[in-house]
Design a protein around this nucleic acid. Structure first.
Lengths: 326, 326
DNA sequence: TTGTAGGCGTTATCAT
DNA sequence: ATGATAACGCCTACAA
């Protein structure tokens, strides 16, 4: 069934049917209705392929599905993808997946997706300093949004992010309110935007409460074993912390093992609110992933539909999910 | 850039370029090479839209992304999706995502995807008795594979599954080898194919060892709290089990809480090897999700490329990942 | 083995 | 406001 079938059924020309679909306002009300009825009666759907060939637009957006790294943090992508697909559907776009094991291959994937499938836009996750992917896309005028700030230049392109500093700040505030003074922090080595941001939130919250954060934090790679080691290290100091905020649930889980037998118990707060946190009762900072995904689609469609060139970035607030550990 | 650009560049007709792409064997070696070089030099890629319009095939397969249910089991989808996308790419197919909150909407989604995007095939996850989705697709001659057996008729359509009974059987065997005799089972209410299968594996393993499984199992909905309750129930019997096999990591986590202070410790085995299991050291049955995804693509492309009408189903073996709890 | 002609379903342009 | 015509890039049939 084609647009011609509908045209015959409604006794109009093909062009009029096309107009009803793409520019309803220029068709006379009565004609419009007749065509709409024919469309409904026939169950007609425009062929994307034909439309795409004519317009050069595919109504497709792409997002990379990463190999689950450490398993614990991997499950955030799940929720993000679902939100993305759902919101995109509502906006008339479909979501396409691609994989890439490194940045060079990812750029090759863009090239393929763009030239073969005419992709309309990309959603990138996890940007870092001097990310070559954003430069490549921007150079070619391809529409894209990142979930994660461009740490070099906040104006570079549309982005959505969660305010990590506010998250760790909130966690620290909660611990302060519970009477803790010596509150530690377990985070990643300096240099990663996300990690530095989360550390800064903790540091500023302590300073605002008149507490010197010096010596209360540790830098380590992500992982359960690493978290345990760093926490033991922290506990072995002259003035060990009575509570600790962590940059990830993995680190928090390790910390939890290190403080297992401590009395009075040492409070632990994680980050990401992964299923693992829920399972073991770990208090954790939760990112609004569904919202974040939805706003990514909003920004991308804003660019694609030409509403504006560079829509304003979106910074979402995380929340603290209280459980047993803090 | 079109096929004509390449043709000019290689000083052949458009048709010859097309032949090099779609039927290389009928082009003279020398000509073929010249065309290949032109393609590479120009970075030419055939437009899927145009190709699709002519051939009616999109080289697109679709898979549903579900809202993360209980968080713990949700993360399996992640790994499956990655494997699927990767294998599909290698076979020249792209993966498209869709959402649906219930079966009726899912069928509506098929309709849309099929008529608007000309989807080549679907991968369904989690089939159940009398699944209307498979009937709908089969009726219309749409290619699809399910990850999960058709419990009514194993010949109904191509499928890939993991042998759940073998998994629980293996777990039970491991516990028997460790000297356990009274081995319990925590599973879901009878009626779900997957649940019944997992229970049967445990039951048969016990019977084969000359042990009567009567009274050693419990039926409950999935969940941590439910697992804990059922385990307590089992421990309160006259002859409580010294070990337990569970139908999911959620149930196992609950069981773990119920047996926390038991001495001698009660062994616990979960199912799915989720990140949570890894985090808490839970021994669990692991499904080869990457393999399963790859075989799904194999079966689907076999149908699409017309190699055979109904390729033989694939039953994969799970493995037992040993950790602290058993 | 290579070239020519036509059409897939849609939308843009232009005429009515 | 509506209709006729052409073109998007490709592949299949057929002719050379």
């Amino acid at each position: 069934m084609t647009i011609a079938t509908v045209a015959r059924h409604a006794r109009v020309s093909r062009q009029t049917v096309s107009n009803v679909l793409n520019a309803p306002h220029i068709v006379r009300e009565e004609t419009r209705q007749r065509v709409q009825e024919a469309i409904a009666a026939l169950g007609y759907r425009a062929s994307q392929a034909a439309r795409q060939m004519r317009t050069g637009r595919s109504r497709l957006i792409a997002v990379r599905i990463e190999p689950t790294r450490d398993g614990i943090n991997g499950s955030v992508l799940d929720r993000f993808l679902h939100g993305l697909t759902e919101t995109a559907e509502a906006a008339g776009y479909r979501t396409m997946l691609y994989t890439a094991s490194d940045t060079a291959r990812e750029i090759a994937a863009y090239d393929d997706l763009l030239s073969a499938y005419d992709l309309d836009g990309f959603v990138l996750t996890g940007t870092h300093h001097g990310d070559p992917r954003t430069a490549w896309l921007a150079e070619r005028g391809v529409a894209f949004v990142t979930f994660g700030r461009p740490w070099d230049d906040p104006e570079a392109h549309p982005w959505v992010d969660v305010d990590g500093a506010a998250g760790t700040g909130r966690a620290t505030g909660h611990l302060l309110a519970r009477g803790h003074r010596r509150i530690g922090f377990l985070g990643w080595p300096a240099g990663s935007g996300v990690g530095d941001d989360r550390r800064a939130g903790w540091r500023e919250a302590l300073r605002a409460a008149g507490i010197d954060p010096t010596g209360l934090d540790r830098e380590t790679e992500d992982g359960i074993a690493e978290g345990e080691r760093s926490m033991r290290d922290l506990l072995a100091t002259d003035a060990p912390p009575t509570a600790v905020v962590c940059a990830s649930d993995s680190l928090a889980l390790g910390a939890l093992q290190a403080v297992r037998a401590a009395d009075p118990p040492v409070a632990v707060v994680g980050f990401d609110d992964t299923p693992v946190a829920a399972a073991v009762g770990l208090t954790s900072v939760s990112q609004p992933l569904g919202d974040a995904a939805a706003r990514c689609v909003d920004l991308l469609t804003a660019v694609l539909d030409g509403d504006q060139q560079t829509p304003a970035p979106v910074l979402l607030q995380p929340s603290l999910v209280l459980r047993h550990t803090a």
